[in-house]
Amino acid sequence: MKSIELEVPAEDVGRDTVSRFDMQFQAAAYAALQILEGEGIDCVYCDYHDDFVVRKQVDGKTTYHFFQVKTKKKLNHQWTLAEVFALKSRGQKNDAPSLKKVCASFGGKLLMHAVVFDDSCSEATLLSNVHFDDGVVDAVDALRCRLPACAASKFLSENFSAIFTLSAGDDEKVPAFLSKLSLRPAVHYIGKEREAFANAARTAIYRYSEIDLDFYETERIANGLVDLAYRKSRTPLEGVVPEDIAKRVGIELDDLLEILCISRGAYDALQSGVEEKVLKQASLIQRWLKHAGARDDMIEFASRQKANWDIWLRNARHTYLPIDLSLLLDRIDKLYARWAQSGEGFPFLNTLLTELAGEEEILAFEGLDRGLLFGAVSAVVVRRSSR
């Protein structure tokens, strides 16, 4: 009898196809990490209108950045004009069949977003794990500069209205449409295996939030992000109303917080504070209290009191002498050190806070109750863990 392992399969394209799709999901997941930066990007749509779409909202204006992900098994491959635009290096025709091929090309489909979405389309990018040859790079650079100097850019510029169906008055927008096309070659964060993505994701998470992950956390979160992009891409949309589509196919902040194991309540509570890097604070407080056996309501309470403490301390600097505040902060540091060294649970911390809140020196500070002092201890945890 023959062994299945010894017989070469008739074809093995399925395994390569799965790998290509996984790289698409990696690219979408990596883009979603920009949400953590808090600079306007709030959603990444997965496999909706294109491989993924990044939504950005600034000053009440919503824009979309469209991405197509095209990968090659051979890493020394370079995408050509024929592959990207269905254009020949020489003798390119502008008859109807030729223009139809341009419209259906990778580049043509991306440019269609500029036409359909007009000002709402900020950019349309072809992303790949390999490079583009000089002909493609020169053409896109010329289009972005609105100076169609090479043959390919001239052809696209001169025949744009014939390639795409434009609305009345859109002819004058052609240079603007073409300038939205961009390339992202040989990106380092996608690959057949997820190791490169995991390393890049850890770096991105630290850059956007200053949350530093260990090896096992990195692996868990990286796989969670890619799997999330896969699930969002597979979500059916039949019968879904437009206002629910982002929740169904989009990666949003709540999705990232769940994967990072940060509660939305803690995050929202810390948003009212005066310190930056809310995600880092939420992560540190969550880890500290989870390790101590606290429930989610305690984590949210600590986060809220930490934000209240930040506000109280900022105002107190204008009211009390620096020496008095310095002594107060020293007392809180020592209280935390005593509790941490004791190995006792929260009942002992509560006892220490009750005793401190009743001391005459503490009563001299207006509004400094036990809850605020607990917030002060949370601030100590954040500060010490950030070193």
Rank of each mutant, 00 (worst) to 15 (best):
T125I: 13
L126G: 09
L126Q: 01
L126I: 07
L126C: 08
L127M: 08
S128G: 11
S128R: 14
S128K: 09
N129V: 00
N129K: 04
N129H: 00
N129G: 02
H131F: 13
H131E: 07
F132E: 02
F132L: 04
D133Q: 02
D133R: 01
D134S: 13
G135Q: 08
G135F: 10
V136N: 10
V136G: 12
V136H: 11
V136P: 14
V136I: 10
V137K: 15
V137I: 10
V137C: 11
D138G: 06
D138A: 11
A139R: 01
A139Y: 00
V140A: 04
D141W: 13
D141C: 12
D141K: 14
A142W: 07
A142Q: 05
A142H: 09
A142C: 12
L143A: 00
L143C: 00
R144D: 07
R144N: 08
R144F: 14
R144E: 09
C145V: 14
R146A: 14
R146T: 12
R146K: 15
R146E: 14
L147D: 15
L147C: 12
L147G: 04
P148L: 09
A149R: 10
A149L: 13
C150Q: 07
A151Y: 12
A151E: 13
A151S: 11
A152Y: 01
A152F: 00
A152R: 05
A152P: 04
S153D: 08
S153W: 04
K154R: 11
K154C: 06
K154T: 06
F155T: 00
L156Y: 03
L156H: 09
L156K: 03
L156G: 02
L156W: 00
S157N: 12
S157H: 12
N159G: 11
N159C: 11
F160V: 02
F160S: 04
F160L: 02
F160M: 01
S161L: 05
A162K: 13
A162F: 11
A162P: 07
I163V: 08
I163Q: 01
I163N: 01
F164K: 01
F164P: 00
F164G: 00
F164L: 01
T165R: 03
L166P: 10
L166N: 02
S167F: 14
S167I: 11
S167V: 12
S167C: 13
A168P: 08
G169S: 02
G169A: 05
G169L: 02
G169N: 03
G169R: 04
D170P: 04
D170N: 12
D170F: 08
D171R: 15
D171F: 14
D171W: 13
D171P: 15
D171L: 15
E172W: 14
E172Y: 14
E172D: 15
K173L: 06
V174R: 01
V174D: 06
V174L: 02
P175Y: 05
P175R: 15
A176E: 15
A176F: 15
L178V: 03
L178A: 06
S179F: 05
S179A: 03
L181K: 02
